[in-house]
């Protein structure tokens, strides 16, 4: 089973950050991917990825329209990026693309 850690963020951080996170979780369940999603929204960082999560990850997925915080911790792990729009439109596709890279 592939292991992905994801971070979502959007400019205002009150709506799409959380929607994208939700859709990624649902999509991953469908595709049999183990995923942990951290949200960087107006409420700050929630569901923060632990060092263990990151160490075990095959891939980091960043779904964001802005610069996200704390990227240094992902050093050494392949990173895939996607826009919020693409995750909202077709989260499954975004995850499929990730699997190609794993």
């Amino acid at each position: 089973m592939k292991n992905i850690v994801a971070v979502t963020a959007c400019p205002t951080g009150i709506a799409h950050t959380y929607m994208a996170a939700d859709l990624l979780r649902k999509g991953a369940q469908k595709l049999g991917i183990h995923i942990r999603v951290e949200t960087q929204g107006a409420m700050g960082i929630e569901n923060q990825l632990s060092p263990q999560d990151i160490a075990q990850a095959d891939l980091v997925l960043i779904v964001s329209d802005i610069e996200i915080e704390h990227t240094a911790r992902f050093h050494g792990i392949p990173i895939s990026t996607a826009s919020i729009e693409s995750a909202l439109t077709d989260a499954d596709q975004v995850l499929q693309d990730c699997l190609q890279l794993c």
Binding site: I14, A15, G41, A42, M43
Partner: peptide
């Protein structure tokens, strides 16, 4: 791409918004 809309909920929040307000909106969007 997610289609047209009939119900539009517009919000203009102060910056910084109160934590209650942000929580309410994240509840709604979820």
């Amino acid at each position: 791409p997610r289609g047209p809309v009939r119900c539009i909920i517009a919000a203009a929040l102060p910056k910084p918004a109160s934590i209650e307000m942000i929580r309410a909106f994240t509840n709604l969007s979820k």
